[in-house]
C-alpha cells in the first residue's frame, strides 16, 4: 500500500510539473509548428530569474507574476521577428519546420551561453517549503505539492482560455488547419505568435516551479526539452489536455521505474514513446 501511494501520488506530483513544461512546447510545436529545441532554455532562464529574486528576499512563487508576461512578450517578439520571417520565406510547411528547428537550435546555444556568462555553470539551489506531509504510511514533499497545484491550476486556466475565448478558438482553429483558419479570417501570423508567446510564458513559469523543487544549473534545459518532447508526442501534438495527461502518465511511469531501478527511468519513457509511435502515432488526444 505504501509503495503504491509513493508511486501514484509521487508520480502525479512530478507529472504536474512535467505537464506544464510540455503544454508550452505543445503550443509551440503543435500549433506554431516550431520545434523549439530552446524551450528548456526559456525554462532555465525562468528558474534563474526566480532564484535571483528569491535571493533578494522575494517569495519564490511571486516571480511568476513578472515572468509570465515578460516571457510571453519575448516569445511573441521572437516569433514575429525570427520565425515569421522564416515562415514567409519557406516554400512549404515542411521547409518551415526544418528551418525553424535550425533557428531554434541557434536560439538554444545563444540563450544557454548568455546564461553561462551570467550565472556560470555551478548548480544553484535553495530550500523552500522543504518539509514533508503524510498520506497514510507515505511522506511527500510540500514544495512538490505546491508546484504541482500551481501547474494544474495554470493548465486549467489555459484550457478555459482556449475553450471559452475568441483568441482560444482562433488558436484551436490554427492547430487544426492553419491555412483554412487563415482563409476564415483568423490573423494567422498573430495567432501563431500568440501560441509561441504562451509557450515561452509557460516555460518560464515551469522554471519557477522547478526551481522551488530541484537544483538548477545553466545546462539543465535540454533534459526537460527531451522529456517534454516525449510527453507532447504521447499526448498528441497541439493538444493541451493531451499534454496534461501525457505529463501525468510519464510522471507515474518515471516514479515507478525509479523505485525499481533509477537508471532505467528515462529508458522506460522512451519505451513508451516507441510503443506509442508504433501503435498510435497521433498520440492519446491527437487527431
Amino acid at each position: 500500500m505504501a509503495l503504491f501511494l509513493n508511486i501514484f501520488i509521487g508520480g502525479l506530483l512530478i507529472g504536474g510539473i512535467y505537464s506544464l513544461v510540455s503544454m508550452g512546447l505543445s503550443l509551440q510545436y503543435g500549433v506554431a509548428r516550431v520545434f523549439n529545441i530552446a524551450h528548456g532554455e526559456f525554462m532555465m532562464f525562468g528558474a534563474f530569474v526566480t532564484y535571483w529574486l528569491q535571493s533578494l528576499g522575494v517569495n519564490p512563487l511571486i516571480p511568476t507574476i513578472v515572468i509570465a508576461p515578460l516571457f510571453f512578450v519575448v516569445g511573441f517578439i521572437l516569433y514575429r521577428t525570427v520565425f515569421t520571417g522564416i515562415r514567409v520565406r519557406s516554400p512549404n510547411p515542411g521547409v518551415f519546420e526544418s528551418n525553424g528547428m535550425l533557428a531554434a537550435f541557434g536560439l538554444y546555444f545563444i540563450v544557454q551561453n548568455i546564461a553561462v556568462l551570467i550565472w556560470g555553470s555551478t548548480p544553484y539551489a535553495f530550500a523552500y517549503l522543504n518539509t514533508s506531509f503524510g498520506i497514510g504510511p507515505s511522506d511527500f514533499r510540500v514544495n512538490r505539492l505546491v508546484a504541482a497545484a500551481f501547474a494544474v491550476g495554470i493548465g486549467l486556466i489555459f484550457y478555459l482560455f482556449l475553450t471559452s475565448t475568441r483568441s482560444g478558438k482562433a488558436i484551436r482553429a490554427a492547430a487544426q488547419d492553419s491555412a483554412t483558419a487563415g482563409l476564415m479570417g483568423v490573423d494567422i501570423n498573430f495567432v501563431l505568435a500568440l501560441c509561441f508567446g504562451f509557450g515561452a510564458a509557460m516555460a518560464g513559469i515551469a522554471g519557477t516551479l522547478i526551481c522551488i523543487c530541484y537544483p538548477i544549473s545553466t545546462t539543465m534545459g535540454l533534459q526537460y526539452t527531451v522529456i517534454a518532447t516525449v510527453i507532447i508526442t504521447l499526448g498528441g501534438l497541439g493538444s493541451i489536455p493531451g499534454s496534461f495527461i501525457g505529463g501525468l502518465i510519464i510522471g507515474i511511469v518515471y516514479t515507478a521505474v525509479n523505485y525499481w531501478q533509477p537508471g532505467l527511468a528515462v529508458a522506460a519513457c522512451y519505451v513508451i514513446f516507441i510503443i506509442l509511435l508504433l501503435v498510435r502515432p497521433k498520440g492519446i488526444m491527437g487527431r
Binding site: 509513493n6 523505485y259 533509477p262
Partner: peptide, 17 residues
C-alpha cells in the same frame, strides 16, 4: 547498492527505501 543515472532529479524513491 543502487545505481542512478546522471540526469536523475527525483530522490524520493531512494530516500524512502
Amino acid at each position: 547498492a543502487k545505481s542512478i543515472p546522471i540526469n536523475i532529479t527525483d530522490f524520493d524513491p531512494i530516500v524512502n527505501e
